[in-house]
Design a protein around this nucleic acid. Structure first.
Lengths: 248, 248
DNA sequence: CGAGATGTTGAGACATGTCAAAGCCAGTGG
DNA sequence: CCACTGGCTTTGACATGTCTCAACATCTCG
């Protein structure tokens, strides 16, 4: 608990000692807290939150085809979203860190269009979507926030569009991950990639072997230091340069 | 005008002679008309619509980096959205038919993250986004519709994710286009691909030569008949089978 | 009709995928 | 503590789909 505080303080600098404290341990904090809601609005938002988990690694948060009823904010841990086609081949759509929201792509068809699987011990906040939409009716800022979050997901989807080389993809992946870590107050250069190489490869549309080889090459070139699933970015600028076409 | 009526009737069967007629020539009709708004709500929605165009081919509707202020519904013609990186290489994100909405990906950064370029003589409806958001505050159905449309765009973004073969991509592209044509009341098997081969290739992350070759192969196999930019799907089911992994 | 854009076709190159084998670590049970 | 198992990961050798380059064909439009 107390060990987690520093990171949280970075997410929400004003969080310490203000009236929104009740939300402080929930990663959705950075979605709603900085938005200047008044106390009663926040109370209403708080009412529709349901803490779920902890899940172990490799459990489903929701499944492809399930009726869509809620979105989830990752509170701790990591989640991947992925599709499995009839042949059983998996396609990873994304990795989701604490503070990030999953499930918004289920609104359209009123069913989840993908699986969400924990990679790690994970806890989440569940937001009933109908309730949230109703509340957004009263809170313009919440509606706007939802629009922005959805818009962000649209953008993210087009990130790996384009025929990029394995080097570009992997460099962009590392930098993106590091940036997202940093935004949560964690180190911008050291991180643990909790997902398997296979998952990374799958996400980047590469073969696992290619990921292995490129990581080794990056290491040989002094761009990174890899030890199992721990990575240190030794030359973030160079990586950013390599991946710039993907990151744009 | 009257020549366009049959297609519109297909979009909105009740359109003829009802009180929503004023909106009948606008492609956004199928977004709002079937939703059961009352007359005054529709009037308000109508107020914030601004008809723009006609544009000729190859004109910008909006540009990368421009301040985001509105979304556009294609009324007639076709629009492509695309990114251009610093090296001048283009990346086509999508093609947009009448009735489809562009610009939603600009909400997040309050700037358009891509260019929107007409492929054809095109007219559009411009919806001020702030005004629309405000109205959505009063009209739950409108808010829901916006959520659904954004969610749909998120889904569409992940369509070409995955390492698909050239055959899969092209088959899926043809079927998807035909389906979208059909949904607008046009032929489900004959269509004009107004965009260039280069644009198609670019969209599908293939080389233009590959598109050429695969189209020829499909023709040799009797799946399609191509004549310049006109295409007839001779065996839609087979195409759908080939492209099923992409279409899912 | 000519010129420029657009599309097609062929030959060869190359990045990445595939397959197979071996290495490495974590956990299990003796 | 060790041997064993099973999952990942790495590495090497080879196969192949798609790209690149270049030539040519075809259409469009002044």
């Amino acid at each position: 608990m107390t060990a987690r505080k520093p990171a949280l303080r970075a997410i929400n600098p004003e969080g310490e000692g203000n009236e929104f404290e009740f939300c402080g341990t929930c990663a959705f904090a950075n979605v709603c807290l900085p938005e200047g809601y008044d106390k009663t609005s926040l109370a209403e938002l708080h009412c529709l939150i349901e803490h779920v988990g902890p899940y172990g690694a490799n459990e489903h948060v929701f499944r492809l085809g399930e009726r869509f009823g809620a979105v989830y904010a990752v509170r701790a841990g990591m989640v991947k979203t992925c599709l499995v086609d009839e042949a059983g081949r998996e396609q990873v759509l994304g990795f989701h860190l604490p503070g990030e929201l999953i499930g918004l792509n289920g609104v359209y068809a009123a069913r989840y269009p993908c699986d969400a699987i924990t990679l790690d011990t994970t806890t989440l906040c569940r937001f009933s979507f109908p309730a949230m939409a109703t509340l957004a009716q009263k809170l313009p800022r919440l509606q706007e926030q939802l629009f922005r979050l959805m818009s962000k997901d649209i953008l993210r989807g087009s990130m790996l569009a384009g025929d990029f080389s394995a080097d570009e993809r992997l460099a962009a992946f590392l930098v993106d991950m590091a940036d997202r870590h940093a935004r949560r107050g964690l180190s911008a250069v050291r991180m643990v990639l909790v997902m398997s190489r296979t998952d990374i490869a799958n996400y980047l549309r590469l073969a696992a072997e290619t990921v292995s080889r490129v990581l080794r090459k990056f290491q040989d070139e002094g761009l990174i230091a890899v030890d199992r699933r721990e990575v240190e970015l030794r030359d973030p600028d160079a990586l950013r340069r390599i991946g710039r076409a993907v990151l744009r």
